Simulated assay, not measured.
Amino acid sequence: MAAEKLVNGECGCGGGPHRLIALMVPFMTAAGTSKVEARRRAREATRRANVARAAREKANIENAANYMVAKARLVEIDAWETQRLAAVTDQVRDAANKRRAGTRAEAGAAVKLLQESGETLTTIAELTGDGIGEVRAMLRHAPKVEERSARNDHMH
């Protein structure tokens, strides 16, 4: 080892001048105690702030996750609603189309009976208040003779 050159008053242990330390110890003890206490309080305040921040962040993460899950469920509900409305709409349209077909057949049958009693499409239109085109359209839905007689057989 290389010999280190000592400065006047140093002991060589790396602790600096021991004469000044001896003089500063009583003075530093009083000032050091308040500084140590201040550091301890600062560390404790920082620790409490970190704990509070961590709790807030954990709650924020949970709330953000709840928000995202709820938003995803809203999309699913919208899709479910669209699907259900489409299904119900299809059912209602099918039922309405069946009702329309039956009702148009009744209207056509009535026009056919009016014709069989000698009325023309013009007089039927005047009698009903509809245009000739509408009367003619209903006549197209009239059951054929075979269907009408079969229907009449079931009614009696």
Results as ranks from 00 to 15, higher is better:
residue 1 M to D: 04
residue 5 K to S: 09
residue 6 L to W: 00
residue 7 V to L: 04
residue 7 V to M: 04
residue 11 C to N: 14
residue 11 C to K: 11
residue 14 G to C: 03
residue 16 G to P: 10
residue 17 P to C: 05
residue 17 P to S: 05
residue 18 H to K: 11
residue 18 H to D: 10
residue 19 R to Q: 04
residue 22 A to I: 01
residue 22 A to L: 05
residue 23 L to F: 04
residue 23 L to Y: 02
residue 23 L to A: 06
residue 24 M to N: 00
residue 24 M to G: 00
residue 26 P to A: 03
residue 27 F to N: 00
residue 28 M to D: 02
residue 29 T to Q: 07
residue 32 G to N: 00
residue 33 T to H: 10
residue 35 K to D: 08
residue 36 V to A: 13
residue 39 R to G: 12
residue 39 R to C: 07
residue 39 R to E: 10
residue 40 R to S: 13
residue 41 R to Q: 13
residue 41 R to A: 13
residue 41 R to W: 05
residue 41 R to Y: 08
residue 41 R to K: 10
residue 42 A to Y: 12
residue 42 A to E: 15
residue 43 R to K: 04
residue 43 R to C: 04
residue 44 E to P: 05
residue 44 E to R: 10
residue 45 A to Y: 04
residue 45 A to M: 09
residue 46 T to I: 03
residue 46 T to G: 06
residue 47 R to M: 12
residue 47 R to F: 08
residue 48 R to D: 08
residue 51 V to M: 14
residue 51 V to R: 12
residue 51 V to K: 13
residue 54 A to W: 05
residue 54 A to R: 09
residue 54 A to Q: 09
residue 56 R to W: 14
residue 57 E to W: 00
residue 57 E to C: 01
residue 59 A to Y: 07
residue 59 A to F: 05
residue 60 N to Y: 03
residue 62 E to M: 03
residue 63 N to L: 10
residue 64 A to M: 08
residue 66 N to F: 03
residue 68 M to I: 06
residue 68 M to T: 11
residue 68 M to H: 06
residue 69 V to T: 09
residue 70 A to L: 04
residue 70 A to H: 06
residue 70 A to V: 01
residue 71 K to D: 03
residue 76 E to H: 06
residue 77 I to Y: 06
residue 78 D to T: 05
residue 79 A to G: 06
residue 80 W to I: 05
residue 80 W to Y: 08
residue 80 W to G: 01
residue 81 E to D: 07
residue 81 E to Y: 08
residue 82 T to I: 02
residue 83 Q to H: 03
residue 88 V to P: 02
residue 88 V to D: 12
residue 89 T to R: 15
residue 90 D to I: 05
residue 92 V to Y: 10
residue 93 R to Q: 15
residue 93 R to H: 12
residue 93 R to D: 15
residue 94 D to M: 07
residue 94 D to T: 13
residue 95 A to N: 12
residue 98 K to D: 14
residue 98 K to V: 11
residue 98 K to N: 13
residue 99 R to P: 00
residue 100 R to H: 12
residue 101 A to M: 13
residue 102 G to L: 12
residue 103 T to G: 12
residue 103 T to M: 13
residue 105 A to C: 11
residue 106 E to C: 07
residue 106 E to A: 14
residue 106 E to D: 15
residue 109 A to S: 11
residue 110 A to Y: 03
residue 110 A to Q: 07
residue 111 V to P: 11
residue 112 K to I: 04
residue 112 K to G: 08
residue 113 L to A: 15
residue 113 L to D: 15
residue 113 L to E: 15
residue 114 L to V: 07
residue 116 E to R: 10
residue 118 G to L: 08
residue 119 E to A: 13
residue 121 L to Y: 06
residue 124 I to L: 06
residue 125 A to M: 08
residue 125 A to P: 10
residue 126 E to K: 01
residue 127 L to V: 01
residue 129 G to L: 01
residue 130 D to K: 02
residue 130 D to S: 00
residue 131 G to I: 00
residue 131 G to F: 01
residue 132 I to D: 09
residue 135 V to G: 06
residue 137 A to E: 10
residue 137 A to M: 05
residue 138 M to A: 14
residue 139 L to V: 02
residue 141 H to T: 06
residue 145 V to I: 11
residue 146 E to L: 11
residue 147 E to T: 08
residue 152 N to R: 06
residue 154 H to F: 04
residue 155 M to E: 14
residue 155 M to Y: 07
residue 155 M to T: 09
residue 155 M to G: 09
